[in-house]
């Protein structure tokens, strides 16, 4: 039986399709089957146009309306559940949004769910990290409907565009918000730097920075020079040096940029879980025995207060 696969996309802040959809496509291609892409939001105009040109898909489903603007789990379940059994697989990115609604749908459909996969072995067998990525488990999911969240960084995005835009089907938007839940306030942290998920270079700081002022004063200019996103270890976030949404690690974001520069980060297992698949890792730390050096391609031992400005200045030349 051929697989029928639904990929549930996410929109970025400007209403464009997030690039994670291309990683979902890579994962879906190894499942083999017909692929539909579901786009949802308060205004999906740009994202639908972009989705229609994704290569190798059958059609785009468009869920648009005011009740979908905030991405509440209840609303996403109301949108997706009526279609769910038309598919053998539903995949979405393992983001805060994806992790929020998909388990809810799984329970409503009474199916077990597979979280945060990094590999596809066959149409029912997936590889996923457990224990902060210290070990990988190969898991068979015999459910007739497989609900899967995908670690985008583990699947290089499909390139290119389809020859002709595919058809769009509009879905009925859930009419009312749930009784139980309302969004009160949305705070989006705006920064003039690339986002952590998409940046080619990430400059990340840890406890060794010593203060929020140092974090920005030392890492900011370096990040600007490299057009990099800023990241942080859990310790740095807990200490208030950096905001929560830049935490890299087991329970924060998982990144895999071309270049990851870890500054004043000792390299706890929980942090390594979030960055060790980066292509090139640089570590700057005063402790030559810090575990971060076990994953770093290039290590520099010394005082970050001296070395980081020196690195920034050298790049400016």
């Amino acid at each position: 039986m051929e697989n029928r696969i639904l990929l549930v996309a996410e929109l970025g802040s400007e209403g464009h399709l997030k690039s994670s959809i291309r990683s979902l496509l890579t994962a879906a291609r190894s499942l083999e089957g017909e692929i539909d892409v579901l786009v949802w939001g308060g205004d999906t105009t740009f994202a639908v146009a972009e989705a229609r040109r994704l290569p190798g898909i059958r059609r785009v489903l468009n869920g648009v309306g005011p009740t979908l603007a905030d991405g509440l789990a209840e609303m996403l379940c109301a949108l997706v559940q009526p279609l769910a059994r038309q598919y053998t697989h539903i995949l979405t990115a393992a983001t805060v949004i994806g992790k929020n609604w998909m388990p809810r749908l799984a329970a409503l459909e009474d199916v077990a769910m597979v979280s945060d996969i990094v590999g596809v072995e066959s149409s029912d067998t997936f590889v996923r990290p457990i224990y902060a990525g210290s070990v990988w488990a190969t898991v068979c999911c015999p459910e007739p409907l497989k609900l899967v969240t995908v670690r985008s960084t583990a699947f290089p995005g499909v390139e290119g565009e389809g020859a002709d835009p595919v058809a769009v089907e509009n879905l009925p938007c859930p009419e009312a918000l749930p009784q139980s839940t309302r969004i009160a306030v949305h705070t989006h942290v705006q920064e003039g730097r690339p986002s952590l998920e998409n940046a080619r270079v990430v400059v990340s700081g840890g406890r060794g920075l010593g203060s929020a002022e140092h974090y920005e004063a030392l890492l900011g200019p370096l990040a600007d020079e490299l057009n990099a996103a800023l990241g942080a270890s859990r310790a740095a976030v807990d200490l208030g040096y950096a905001p929560n949404d830049v935490q890299v690690g087991q329970t924060g974001k998982v990144v895999a940029p071309d270049l990851y520069i870890a500054i004043g980060i000792s390299g706890a297992i929980q942090h390594l879980a979030g960055m060790q698949t980066s292509r090139v890792i640089v570590a700057i730390n005063k402790d030559p025995d810090a575990p971060i050096f076990t994953v770093a391609d290039y290590g520099l031992v010394g005082d970050l207060n001296v070395l980081v400005p020196e690195l920034t200045a050298a790049l400016q030349k």
């Binding site: 199916v111 457990i130 070990v135 488990a137 190969t138 068979c140 999911c141 890792i281 994953v295 520099l300």
Partner: peptide
Amino acid sequence: RLKTLRVQEPPQRPAGIK
């Protein structure tokens, strides 16, 4: 419902240099 077929160490990064 899910069956774990095997558990293994993830691919290791080759050692880097200082």
